[in-house]
């Protein structure tokens, strides 16, 4: 510690000496130097983003106008044929529908449900919040592939634990993964297991930020807990909620891939195939790079619509408050 102090002292003296040499750095010069450093420090991140995020998006645009099997040296320009084929294809339309079904389930299980649960953890119980939240967050640190493999085991048709439990209530054996609708449900459950804790922490953070005086005042006026949620907590946490909504939507799109790949590979008869999975199949199974790129851009367009809507809504809410 003392050595550090001494060194600092020495440094200071050196600097004082330098100052005396009247190396006056003008404000403009410093500004320019700071600007240079700004660019220098940000350039590694920017370069990686340009090469591995921006360029790929643009390259997708290029690929989507061409026909190419990923091996041949020539790419054939086909105009918008890839998009036309896509929208004429029943399987593609079905996969869009499946994607929205899946997102719809996820919005209930990892948006609405943790929202209410966080409120219950903060305002409806007196203690235990910290223990509950650390346990509930834990699955968020487990790999989606682990989740998929364990759920595959849990939801086995024959001898699976879930079916065994349902049998107690007289429910007949369900072939979860061999049937489109139930398979989508199981895939959504895997994503829920992964994301629930993460979203819960975001909601908890926002709900704890709501000024306690407001809630105390409402309690004095005998407002019900239900009313407090709708009238105070919900409006004051809405900007976080919008953020969580968009995150759930975009990450949900990504998270559907691993369980689809491990649990069903898109089957039975394509019933669980979704946008993200069709990109993968077109690119790495049937080697139609044009189709894969076109599907990728449609997916991106859907996400961008949601993001733009989010920003518009957020502004509105912002001004309304």
């Amino acid at each position: 510690m003392a050595e550090k102090e001494l060194r600092k002292q020495a440094q200071k003296e050196e600097r004082a000496a330098a100052k005396k040499e009247k190396k006056i750095v003008t404000k403009a010069m410093r500004k320019r130097r700071d600007g240079l450093l700004f660019a220098l420090l940000l350039s590694p991140a920017i370069i990686f983003f340009v090469v591995f995020v921006i360029y790929p998006v643009l390259y997708n645009v290029y690929l989507s106008f061409h026909e190419w099997n990923m091996v041949s040296p020539n790419k054939k320009f086909v105009g918008i044929k890839n998009y036309e084929n896509l929208f004429k294809d029943g399987e593609f339309i079905q996969s869009v529908g499946t994607t929205f079904k899946y997102i719809g389930i996820c919005l209930i299980t990892i948006f609405v449900f943790p929202y209410f649960l966080s409120y219950a953890m903060v305002h409806l119980i007196d203690k235990g919040q910290e223990t509950y939240r650390s346990v509930l967050f834990f699955p968020s640190l487990i790999s989606l592939s682990v989740g998929a493999i364990v759920f595959q085991f849990l939801f086995r048709g024959i001898g699976g634990p879930i079916n065994a439990m349902l049998a107690w209530f007289g429910v007949e054996k369900i072939s979860w993964l061999n049937d489109g609708p139930t398979a989508i449900l199981v895939i959504a459950f895997v994503a829920t297991w992964k994301t629930f804790g993460y979203n819960m922490l975001i909601f908890l953070g926002a709900i704890l930020e709501v000024p306690t005086e407001l809630i105390e005042a409402a309690k004095l006026e005998n407002a019900s807990k239900w009313k407090i949620f709708w009238r105070i907590v919900l409006p004051l946490t809405s900007s976080t909620a919008f953020y969580a909504f968009v995150i759930t939507f975009t990450y949900g799109l990504g998270q559907v891939f691993t369980p689809t790949n491990i649990l069903t590979s898109g089957g039975p008869t394509n019933s669980t195939s979704n946008l993200v999975y069709t990109i993968y199949e077109a690119a790495f199974f049937t080697f139609q790079s044009g189709r894969a790129a076109a599907t990728a851009l449609v997916t991106l367009a859907i996400v961008m619509v949601v993001v733009v809507l989010y920003q518009a809504l957020e502004k509105k809410v912002h001004y309304a408050n």
Partner: peptide, 17 residues
Amino acid sequence: ITMFVPFSVIMLPNYLT
């Protein structure tokens, strides 16, 4: 903005790179 580009959208070009 880069946060909102799903991984699956860019996986094919990145694979080619």
